[in-house]
């Protein structure tokens, strides 16, 4: 094994190395969320803008762009999950005997439930991909834009969120995503060594604001559709 490969393996097998992988992949995923939200908010502009944007994504770099993005995201997603599950297992093993009484002094609920919010988000992402990307519901897959011959992404989103149980599931999952981000975004800075006396206050505020923007932006769409503020026609 070459020294470089050996170092990479050693880095991955170390606790800090895995956390750095979690932080770096987290940056990609957190950045993706901002881009995804910006695109989604086009439903408030209307059908043409939403469908133009969907068409733009599908034809970016002659159709290769979206697959490159998917490959990068899938790689980051898998690395993020594998590393966190391995870290969680070693953390559980590090305290074989639990305390009879344990009192928390600093930690937050979001920090304590990271693995559970993360696994729920994993289940949600699988559902979300089947719902809007693979489109297992033929009714949503067959929708056509009434003006241009193309798939009606706008109509698919509106019809999809008019289903109240589905919308409620999205809202619950996105609330857990907000919780995950409120701890995760701040943790990126700590793990990459950017937290200090000067920056720790700003990092905490930034993390909360980022999580809140992502949460409010995403849940506003199913809520607006359920309330009839965004119509199919």
């Amino acid at each position: 094994m070459s020294p470089l490969v050996s170092t990479i393996c050693q880095f991955w097998s170390s606790s800090i190395g895995k956390k750095v992988v979690v932080a770096l992949t987290g940056i990609v995923l957190v950045g993706f969320l901002a881009g995804h939200l910006a695109g989604n908010l086009l439903v408030y502009v209307g059908r043409e803008a939403t469908n133009d944007y969907a068409e733009f994504l599908m034809h970016l770099l002659h159709g290769a762009g979206i697959w490159i993005a998917r490959a990068v995201l899938l790689t980051c997603f898998v690395l993020h999950i594998v590393a966190t599950i391995q870290l969680t297992r070693s953390n559980r093993a590090a305290r074989a005997d639990a305390y009879e009484v344990k009192t928390s002094v600093r930690t937050t609920l979001s920090a304590r439930v990271m693995i559970w919010s993360g696994l729920t988000i994993l289940a949600f992402v699988i559902f979300h991909l089947l719902h809007f990307t693979v489109r297992i519901d033929q009714g949503l897959a067959d929708l056509r834009d009434p003006l241009v011959d193309r798939h009606d992404t706008y109509g698919m989103v509106v019809r999809g969120f008019q289903n109240v149980p589905v919308s409620l599931f999205y809202i619950v999952a996105l609330t857990l995503l907000c919780s995950h981000l409120s701890h995760g975004v701040a943790s990126i800075f700590q793990t990459l060594g950017l937290r200090s006396k000067k920056t720790r206050g700003a990092i905490k505020v930034f993390s909360w604001i980022y999580a809140a923007i992502i949460w409010l932006g995403f849940i506003s769409i199913p809520i607006s559709i359920m309330l009839g503020l965004v119509h199919f026609d």
């Binding site: 606790s15 928390s104 930690t107 990271m114 800075f189 700590q190 990459l192």
Partner: peptide, 30 residues
């Protein structure tokens, strides 16, 4: 185990050492 940024440590440290030293260790190790 490894640090997942709960900051319980700095809350109980009798010398009130800040978890900023953990951030520095993370950076230096990487």
């Amino acid at each position: 185990g490894n640090c997942t940024n709960h900051y319980e440590c700095e809350g109980v440290c009798p010398k009130e050492i800040s978890a900023d030293v953990i951030a520095r260790l993370n950076r230096e190790y990487a």
